[in-house]
């Protein structure tokens, strides 16, 4: 592997647009989180739930567009060790997004702060990566977005193990089961995407 291949690959996958998008999301998360935590009529740091759910979700949706090449079929017919590249791609994104978002919630990291932002980054990116393997990069945002909306509006108050497992994005960071669920989703999504890549139709594309 050389730096030149890496640079071309990052450009091919729209890395600069992704970094710019994540920077904007980070700034908005910081501003939104600070504003929500500072309102006397809200729950203090616990009021940051919308930021904790939405910011990593948007970053994961942005990542989805980078998970396929312009011509998946043409590229996967090459001998490059694609599973390793794909895994590296997702892990690098997890690290970058989590690092950026965690910074925005460090002042009060508990409940819905830095810790929950890191957990949700794992979960949402895992979900988008898994959906890419099953549905293709173009539709990968759909399951995460739909699940995110459903779980946010359901917002169970209970923090029991079963609830924490299915409603991990809206659980306080102290709920251990929510970490297991988010990490499990990341492991599954990462493995599925690394081995399958972005889903490609078995049928040939229509000609130009």
């Amino acid at each position: 592997m050389t730096g030149r291949l890496l640079r071309l690959h990052l450009r091919a996958r729209g890395a600069s647009a992704f970094v710019a998008g994540v920077s904007v999301i980070t700034l908005l998360a910081w501003a939104g989180g600070t504003w929500l935590a500072g309102r006397s009529f809200l729950d203090g740091p616990a009021a940051r739930l919308p930021v904790v759910v939405l910011a990593p979700l948007l970053a994961a949706v942005l990542l989805g567009s980078t998970l396929a090449g312009a011509d998946e079929e043409l590229e996967r017919g090459t001998p490059l060790r694609w599973p390793a590249w794909r895994a590296g791609h997702v892990l690098l994104a997890v690290f970058a997004v989590a690092a950026a978002l965690v910074l925005t919630g460090l002042r009060v990291p508990e409940t819905f702060g830095a810790h929950a932002l890191a957990r949700n980054t794992f979960g949402w990116i895992g979900l988008v990566a898994g959906a890419t393997a099953l549905l293709g990069a173009r539709l990968a945002w759909l399951p995460a977005f739909g699940y995110g909306c459903a779980v946010y509006f359901a917002r169970p108050r209970d923090t029991g193990v079963f609830v924490a497992l299915w409603a991990w994005p809206v659980q306080p960071s102290a709920a251990a089961a929510s970490w297991w669920a988010a990490s499990g989703v990341l492991a599954l999504g990462l493995t599925g995407y690394a081995y399958r890549g972005s889903a490609v139709s078995r049928r040939p594309r229509p000609s130009q």
């Binding site: 091919a12 011509d71 017919g77």
Partner: peptide, 14 residues
Amino acid sequence: RRRLGYLPQAFGFY
């Protein structure tokens, strides 16, 4: 694959 060249009927590009 190292010794293969392929041009599909319609291909995506950057």
